[in-house]
Amino acid sequence: MTVKIVIGLDGTDTGERALAFAKDLASKIDACELLAIYVIEWSPFTFQTPEENEQRHKRREEEIALAMARIVEPAVAALQEAGFKASGLVRHGDVAETLNKLTVENGGSQIIVGRASSDGFAKRIFGSSTQNLVMHADVPVTVVG
């Protein structure tokens, strides 16, 4: 049976470390598939001007293309080069919630993410995406420091 491991990318060094750890782990499993996901932080409950709304579809396409080209595709290419079966996804939404949902939808058995890359006032109050993921995920989560 193929084991599917999900890697949560965030475009920073910690994401890179998560990627390296996933590679290491996958090399120890016989049939393993890797899924690299980048979630663009977005909420349907924000306030926007009419002009922003008018342009939103275009912006969304641009955001997805940019995340694909800069973060996901290089990661997937690196994994494939190393001989792994790998694919990538970009989605808008709440990071923790979306990562968990996509993992479940795609039959992932565990999630590997980097430790929160920065800490600030908001994170002290609401917790980081990583903390939220660890607390609410439906599958085991490995946090790479």
Binding site: I40, W42, P44, F45, T46, F47, Q48, T49, P50, N53, R56, H57, R60, E63, I64, R91, H92, G93, T98, K101
Partner: peptide, 18 residues
């Protein structure tokens, strides 16, 4: 009733708020 695949587009809430 929002399709998760449309995440990132203008939501009903945003259109109403605007």
């Amino acid at each position: 009733y929002s399709d998760p695949n449309d995440a990132g587009e203008v939501s009903h809430f945003q259109a109403l708020a605007t």
